[in-house]
Structures are given as structure tokens and as C-alpha cells.
């Protein structure tokens, strides 16, 4: 782990804190999720660090639990989109020809409809539950991963060691998982950070629009929705999730930048 730049270390540290808070939510949250503990929209005090929300619930507690939901849904959606997108992308690259054409054109078609609009169309008829949200977000996002992993895999597929594996008599599955996947991992990991941030923004947007996480559960987008009326009276409660989202996305970006730089330096040679 030598030679990590300070910015990436800072990013790792802050990202780690967010994940830790999400995992330990039930133990570190000062109050219960739905517990009404004070007046509505109380300013921050030693008792309520971030103040209270539109129903008098502790905002810090809701931010911690909301972060748990947001981070969980975003991570799960990213996992779905990466597994599906990269496996399909590698498959398209390895098989090539007609298979590749068909898969790529279908992918282009899905990408031609704006993601948010397509999600709204699908969610208008689906029951809005967390598994459905994860699947819809993951499937829609896998189109971007498909495009990247296909492009990366096409380059790797023509290298000598892949040909060697083929001549050895290995099957397509071996080529995909043992030859291409390990070599495509670096650019994919860099992309992972960006897709994760995108998933966070996406689930927050959906919840804000009222078609994401449903009450009594909450997430960062939901907290904005609940406290939006306060803005007009000068109560900044709805802006607190903004701080959380910006901090998290900048930290993840710092880590992703580092991963990306590492990837580009790898292209020169594998010595370092």
C-alpha cells in the first residue's frame, strides 16, 4: 500500500467513515428512526447535533439511517450493473461477429432513452420496493458498464496470451474469467467509483421524486423531500443531505482518480 497520494488516502478515510456509519447505524444513532424527540425544525443544539426535522425527529439519526439505506441500495445496484454489464460486455467482445452486433445494438437502443425517463416509465407500473429499485437501477446502469467493458475486452482479446490460451484448448468461459477479467480489472475498478456515485445521485433523485424509498424507511433524497417546505422559511434542514452527498462523492472520486492514474501508469509496463 506504499505510494498512495494523500488525496487518495483522505478519500479512502472519508469513504470508510461513511460506510462504517452505515454499517453501525443502529448502534451509533442517538435516537430511534421514527422517534419524535422534540419540536419541529429545532435548530442544532448539544441534544440534537443537526437539529430536528419536519415532525420533530432527530436529524442526525435520520441522516445516519438514511445513509445506510442510500449506501446499501447504491452498492447493491452497482454490484448488479457491474456483474451483468461486465460479463455481457466480455461475452460480446470474445464471441464477436453477430453476437456482438446484436448485443451492442440492443445496448445502444436502451441507452437512447434517457435513464431517468425510462426508470420513471418502468416504476409507474412496478411495485416500488427496495429489490425492484436495485434491479431497475442496476439494469439501466449496466448499459454503461457493458460499453466500457466491451471496449476494454476487445483490446485484450487480440493479445498473444489470449491466443495462447485458445490454442491450449481453453473454452470461452476460461478466456472470459481467467484471461480477460484479471486484465480488465483496473479500468473497471476506476469506473466502479463513478458508477457508485451515479447510483447515489440516482436513488436520491428517485426518492426525492417520491418513487424511491418509501416511508417509514428513509434515505438522503427522502430527507430532502420531507424537509423541503422548511427552505422557504429559511430552515436549512433539507440542505444537510447535500453536504453528505457532496462529501461522499468527492471522496469516492479522489479514490477513483487514483485508481485511474494507477491504471494508465500500468500501461507502460508491469514492473512497478
Amino acid at each position: 500500500m506504499k505510494g498512495i497520494p494523500i488525496s487518495a488516502l483522505l478519500g479512502l478515510f472519508v469513504t470508510g467513515l461513511f460506510f462504517l456509519a452505515a454499517i453501525l447505524a443502529p448502534w451509533i444513532a442517538p435516537y430511534g428512526l421514527g422517534q419524535i424527540v422534540g419540536d419541529i425544525w429545532e435548530p442544532s443544539s448539544s441534544q440534537f447535533w443537526l437539529g430536528t426535522d419536519n415532525l420533530g425527529r432527530d436529524l442526525l439519526t435520520r441522516m445516519i439511517y438514511g445513509g445506510q439505506t442510500t449506501i446499501f441500495v447504491a452498492s447493491a445496484a452497482t454490484a448488479v450493473s457491474f456483474t451483468l454489464g461486465s460479463v455481457l460486455g466480455f461475452t460480446a467482445a470474445v464471441y464477436g461477429g453477430l453476437t456482438d452486433q446484436i448485443m451492442s445494438r440492443i445496448n445502444d437502443l436502451v441507452m437512447s432513452i434517457p435513464t431517468l425517463i425510462f426508470a420513471l416509465v418502468v416504476l409507474s407500473v412496478m411495485p416500488v420496493t427496495i429489490p425492484v429499485l436495485i434491479l431497475v437501477m442496476g439494469l439501466l446502469d449496466s448499459t454503461r458498464v457493458f460499453r466500457l467493458s466491451r471496449a476494454v475486452a476487445v483490446d485484450i482479446n487480440v493479445m498473444d496470451f489470449v491466443e495462447a490460451a485458445r490454442l491450449r484448448g481453453e473454452g470461452q468461459r476460461w478466456v472470459i474469467f481467467r484471461e480477460i477479467l484479471p486484465n480488465a480489472l483496473s479500468p473497471l475498478v476506476a469506473e466502479l467509483g463513478l458508477r457508485f456515485i451515479f447510483a447515489i445521485l440516482f436513488i436520491s433523485t428517485l426518492s426525492f421524486l417520491g418513487i424511491g424509498i418509501q416511508p417509514p424507511e428513509t434515505d438522503w433524497g427522502g430527507i430532502v423531500k420531507e424537509n423541503r417546505e422548511g427552505i422557504v422559511y429559511g430552515i436549512p434542514a433539507a440542505l444537510i443531505p447535500a453536504v453528505a452527498i457532496v462529501t461522499l462523492s468527492i471522496s469516492v472520486n479522489l479514490v477513483a482518480d487514483w485508481a485511474l492514474n494507477r491504471t494508465t501508469s500500468l500501461k507502460g509496463g508491469r514492473g512497478g
Binding site: I231, L239, I245, S249
Partner: peptide, 13 residues
């Protein structure tokens, strides 16, 4: 790095 709706509220505020 901000979702549109939050940028909206920051600017509104």
C-alpha cells in the same frame, strides 16, 4: 457532484 434537485434547493435557499 450534487444531484440537480439539491443544487436547486441550495440555490433557492
Amino acid at each position: 457532484s450534487l444531484p440537480e434537485f439539491l443544487l436547486g434547493y441550495v440555490i433557492m435557499y
